[in-house]
Structure formats: structure tokens, C-alpha cells
């Protein structure tokens, strides 16, 4: 009962049809009907503005940035502009300040993301499972997410300022923001406060994917609350956790606002973003500033790559695109 295949003949016909363009209803290309071409055109048309803006404001500048990083270019001495290949990279990479800032950035990133993961998970569980006041908890948790970082940073700064702050008075000794260890702790605290809710929301989306029946089955099977959490919930939530970690890690690596307000980078508390900014805006050194920009970009790219390749983080939006 096999039906005779019509493919070869039809294909030939299609091709010859392709040549006859004078007939308006004939298709210019085989297998592309009017509707399909319309759809393509519309797709491109709709995406073009967004794509253009994104490319114009990121791709071009980052290439331009790379070009600048190969030059000696100090706005204080514009006449000394000169192409120096990778000399700027040598300068930056052999500079102690850069590596200190890099270390500070890594420290802030690792500690804050680690703490946020734990706190965020706890917060997600509370938001997801609380029996009372769910709306209240979710609303409150959104406030740190929504608040302007600079505002929050000022709040923490004044809280720790001697005599002004309610927290500074709790600790007897001096000004915590002027000592490196305590200042870094405060920066990390401010970061954690601000972004734990975001982490928690992402994790909550993962929690929602854990079927209630699965937890019930596990408890019937004799699993304790902790075992249900580690053996049932965590494995199901793994993709959500990895995505949340990826986003927060990259975000924490860009830390700038909190440091700017809390310490302004004093006492070796600068992050890489801070010193890149300072080189540019205070030092007016475009060459070095651009070099740092490129290096930060590379660092971020490496972090993202590690997450995606090593941990198999599924990039959001990559697996789907369902037409029905």
C-alpha cells in the first residue's frame, strides 16, 4: 500500500517554476509560499529595530573599546595618542592595583553569591510555602529588589557611620567603613540585602516546578524534611539554581554602586568596575580604561562559558521557541 513517491518529479517542477518569475502567483523560491515569505519579512521587520539598537550600542562600542585599548590615549595628553599594540595590557596585568581590585571583586562575588544562594533558598521556601501572609512576604521581599541601589547604599553607609548610625553604635570600635575588612563585609552585606530577593524569586520559580505529589510520596516513603529537600527538591530545581547562580555571579562581578557610595574604593576596596571607572573619569586615560573594559568583558565571558559548559546551565530561552 505504499503510495508512490512524488518527490523527484515535483522538485524538478518546483525548480523550473522558480525561474518563471513573471507569473505573480508563482513562488520565487521553491517551498516558500506567499504566507511564508510574508512571515519572514514580518519577523525581520519586527526584530530589526531591537537588534539594531542592541548591536549599535554594544557590539560596536566593544570593538571600538578593543581598538582604543591598543592605543596610548590619555585625554590629558591627547597629542601623545599612539598605537602601542598590547602594551596597555602589559601595564594593567602587571599592576598591583588591578590584581587587588580583581581579588576584591572575586571575593565579593563568591561570598555574596554563596550567602545569597542559602538565604535566597530559605526566602524562596518561605515565599512559596508560608501558610499566612504570603502576599505580605512577597511584597516586602520585592522592596530590596526594586529600590535604587544608591539609596540602599546610603542607608547602609549612614547606618555604619559613627554616631549617626544605629548599627555603628552597636559596635564600640571606631568607624567600620574605614577599615578594609569591615568595609568589605559591609559592601557584601549591602549586596546580599539588595539581591537576595531576586535570587529567591528565581529559585521560587524552580520550586514551583517540584510536584507536590512527589514530596508527599517522599514523606510516605519515610523521607525526613531534610531528605525531602536534598533528595527530591534540589535535583528537580537544579536547572533553576544554575540559572540563578549564573545571573547573580555575573551581576555581582559588576559590583559598582555599593562600593562607590560606601567607601568610594578607599582602603583597597575597589572592584574592577570601580578602577576602570576611575581610570576613565578621574584619570581620563581612555587607553588604560578601555583595556580594563576589555579584560572585564573577557572575565565575564569566561565565567559565563564555565557555567554553560561545565555545569550545563541551560540559557533561558534557548531550549524553547515553541510554535505550539
Amino acid at each position: 500500500m505504499s503510495v508512490s513517491s512524488t518527490t523527484p518529479a515535483t522538485t524538478a517542477e518546483e525548480l523550473s517554476e522558480g525561474g518563471r518569475r513573471e507569473l505573480p502567483q508563482k513562488r520565487a523560491k521553491a517551498a516558500l509560499s506567499e504566507g511564508k515569505r510574508q512571515e519572514r519579512r514580518l519577523g525581520w521587520l519586527l526584530c530589526a529595530p531591537a537588534a539594531l539598537v542592541m548591536v549599535a550600542v554594544t557590539a560596536y562600542p566593544i570593538l571600538y573599546s578593543f581598538w582604543l585599548s591598543l592605543q596610548r590615549y590619555d585625554l590629558k595628553f591627547p597629542s601623545e595618542r599612539e598605537f602601542v599594540w598590547f602594551a596597555n595590557y602589559a601595564t594593567v596585568l602587571s599592576n598591583g592595583y588591578w590584581w587587588t581590585a580583581f581579588g576584591v571583586t572575586l571575593l565579593i562575588t563568591v561570598v555574596s553569591v554563596a550567602v545569597e544562594l542559602v538565604l535566597g533558598m530559605a526566602l524562596a521556601l518561605v515565599m512559596h510555602r508560608t501558610l499566612i501572609g504570603r502576599g505580605l512576604v512577597r511584597t516586602s521581599a520585592l522592596i530590596p529588589y526594586g529600590i535604587v541601589t544608591v539609596v540602599a547604599a546610603f542607608s547602609w553607609r549612614y547606618a555604619w557611620t559613627p554616631s549617626t548610625g544605629y548599627l555603628a553604635n552597636l559596635l564600640s570600635d571606631g568607624a567600620p567603613l574605614t577599615e578594609r575588612a569591615s568595609a568589605l563585609s559591609i559592601i557584601i552585606l549591602a549586596e546580599i540585602w539588595k539581591t537576595t530577593p531576586f535570587m529567591a524569586l528565581l529559585l521560587m520559580a524552580g520550586l514551583a516546578l517540584v510536584p507536590e505529589d512527589l514530596l508527599k510520596a517522599a514523606s510516605m516513603d519515610g523521607a525526613s524534611a531534610w531528605q525531602r529537600f536534598t533528595r527530591v527538591m534540589l535535583p528537580v530545581m537544579k536547572p533553576a539554581i544554575l540559572v540563578a547562580l549564573l545571573f547573580r555571579t555575573l551581576d555581582a562581578f559588576r559590583v559598582f554602586d555599593n562600593i562607590y557610595v560606601l567607601t568610594n574604593g578607599a582602603n583597597e576596596t575597589s572592584s574592577v568596575s570601580m578602577i576602570a571607572y576611575n581610570n576613565l573619569m578621574k584619570g581620563l586615560n581612555l587607553g588604560i580604561g578601555s583595556t580594563m573594559s576589555v579584560l572585564i568583558f573577557l572575565a565575564v565571558a569566561i565565567i559565563a562559558f564555565v557555567f554553560v559548559k561545565l555545569f550545563g546551565t541551560a540559557a533561558p530561552g534557548s531550549s524553547d521557541e515553541g510554535r505550539r
Binding site: 550600542v57 554594544t58 562600542p61 566593544i62 571600538y64 573599546s65 582604543l68 549564573l246 545571573f247 555575573l250 562581578f253 559588576r254 559598582f256 574592577v272 568596575s273 576602570a276 571607572y277 576613565l280 573619569m281 581612555l286 580604561g289 578601555s290 580594563m292 573594559s293 576589555v294 572585564i296 568583558f297 572575565a299 565575564v300 559565563a304
Partner: peptide, 12 residues
């Protein structure tokens, strides 16, 4: 995922 600071110098 782009680090905004990387755009600051060229955009400036």
C-alpha cells in the same frame, strides 16, 4: 550578561 562597565569607556 554584558558587564556595563565595559561599555563605559567606549560610550564615553
Amino acid at each position: 550578561m554584558f558587564p556595563q562597565v565595559s561599555l563605559v569607556s567606549p560610550l564615553f
